[in-house]
């Protein structure tokens, strides 16, 4: 049994230690926010936070998350109060299909935690997730907006 805390809730799973966290979340725990895009840590659709750090869960064995806190998109707005990044995402109409956006939002939250006022260069370096629909211009705008709203520290 491997214990991990997912969005504030303690969970135990009986799986192979090498099973990627993504598939534990999606297929064992029915947490569907993290998406599958490539399986090789290229796209970032599967991004979740483990103890506050963004990781690509398709390439992150569940054993490495044992005893740790996992945050997915579903856990970002406890009580339905949207995170400033989510609010900025709505305000600036960032998503197109939306499939990558959970990963993008979690990457942006992690960036803002480290750099509350990121420069364009900071955004370039931190936001490496693929958006096939091409929402990058709006992602950049929304991150600046969330930073400005001044309360972007999760």
């Amino acid at each position: 049994m491997i214990q991990l805390t997912v969005n504030g809730r303690s969970r135990e799973v009986d799986v192979e230690p090498e099973m990627p966290l993504l598939w534990v979340l999606r297929d064992e725990l029915d947490v569907k926010g993290p998406k599958f895009g490539c399986g090789i840590a290229q796209c970032g659709a599967c991004t979740v936070h483990v103890n506050g750090e963004p990781v690509r869960s398709c390439s992150f064995p569940v054993s490495a998350a044992a005893g740790k806190r996992v945050l997915t998109l579903e856990g970002l707005a406890p009580g339905g109060r949207l995170h400033p990044v989510q609010q900025a995402w709505i305000e600036h109409q960032v998503p197109q299909c939306g499939y990558c956006q959970g990963g993008q939002i979690l990457a942006a939250v992690a960036l803002l935690r480290k750099k509350p006022n990121p420069t364009d260069k900071d955004i370039d370096e931190a936001m490496t997730n693929i958006c096939r629909c091409g929402t990058y211009a709006r992602i950049r705008t929304a991150i600046h907006a969330a930073a400005k709203s001044g309360k972007a520290r999760a």
Partner: peptide, 21 residues
């Protein structure tokens, strides 16, 4: 007008084919 599906997307409520359970 703001898109009707975006609030569900950013809150992780929207469902894609891959999310069937």
């Amino acid at each position: 007008i703001k898109r009707v599906d975006i609030p569900d997307i950013v809150a992780g409520r929207i469902r894609y084919g891959i999310d069937a359970q």
